[in-house]
């Protein structure tokens, strides 16, 4: 029962949890917009520090999300390697200067500009990851649907996402049980087994998981239909929380920061901060 709750709601008493789902969603959208648009290192650094502060405020522990973070970092590493392989001079063309540190081959030189560019890319990940994770683990799945609905997403889509999030722990539990039973039959997933065989073995666990999940879906969709789901084009929400002073204050601060960062990013006509 070690990793039972990956990407599920983590209940804590914190200011971040107290915010309504809608505010968190809006802030998250603003946050990712700026993080995606800007390459301004100063903005990114401030955002990164801010996200660490909010993370601390949320009382979420590192162990509770470490698995997902490592998973994403793995892809970040891949991404960095790929950028360098395909475009080793990207930084040079962006910053219009070239400080060569050393040369590997003719094409693959290592420049300060390229390193700085990739540092910025990495920083962008580090700005978005905590925000996205915090949004998911501090928003109660039921409020999640309500918030999506409030900003204009159809409630059926909102409900589908929230149900999917909600079933993650259940499916993880099923996965564990199935994996254990299959292990007893000699289907090994640990690294004692060769990779090709392991992949084959995963199939032996995924198949029962899919079938039992299909059963689950049939039951839940019947249950929903029998209780009038989909009858009207709108619906009301039991757990929607009205916006409080805290929400308005946070939203105001976030919007101001958003505008400020946008100005810093775009005032000189380029999205890049150029120290060279």
């Amino acid at each position: 029962m070690a990793v039972t709750n990956m990407l599920g709601y983590i209940d804590k008493q914190s200011p971040v949890h107290k915010l309504s789902g809608v505010s968190k969603l809006i802030i998250f959208l603003l946050w990712s917009t700026i993080a995606m648009l800007t390459y301004d290192t100063r903005v990114l650094l401030i955002l990164f520090v801010l996200s660490l502060v909010v993370f601390k405020l949320s009382k979420i522990k590192w162990q509770e999300i470490s698995f997902v973070v490592w998973f994403i970092l793995f892809f970040l590493a891949l991404n960095n390697v790929a950028i360098y392989l395909f475009s080793p001079e990207e930084g040079v063309s962006i910053y219009n200067s070239s400080h060569v540190l050393f040369e590997m081959t003719n094409r693959y030189t290592v420049t300060l500009e390229q390193l700085f560019y990739q540092f910025n890319i990495t920083l962008k990940y580090f700005v978005v990851i905590p925000a996205a994770l915090l949004f998911i683990v501090t928003t109660h799945p039921s409020e999640f649907a309500a918030s999506l609905n409030k900003i204009g997403v159809h409630y059926k889509i909102g409900m589908a996402i929230s149900l999917a999030l909600r079933y993650i722990p259940d499916i993880q539990r099923d996965f564990r049980t199935i994996a254990q039973v299959q292990q007893a039959r000699g289907i090994d997933l640990s690294n004692k087994e060769k990779l090709t065989k392991r992949l084959k073995n995963v199939v032996a666990i995924i198949m029962p998981l899919i079938f039992s999940s299909l059963d689950r879906i049939e039951t839940i969709s019947n249950a929903m239909e029998l209780r009038s789901f989909g009858k009207h084009n709108k619906r009301t929400w039991y757990s929607e929380r009205p916006l409080t002073k805290l929400d308005y204050l946070t939203l105001l601060i976030s919007s101001l920061l958003f505008i400020l960062f946008m100005i810093i990013t775009f005032h000189d006509g380029t999205r890049f901060y150029n120290p060279f």
């Binding site: 209780r227 009038s228 789901f229 009207h232 009301t236 929400w237 039991y238």
Partner: peptide, 9 residues
């Protein structure tokens, strides 16, 4: 509350 939500209460 599920039914009530769907009934727009």
């Amino acid at each position: 509350a599920f039914t009530l939500e769907n009934e727009l209460v």
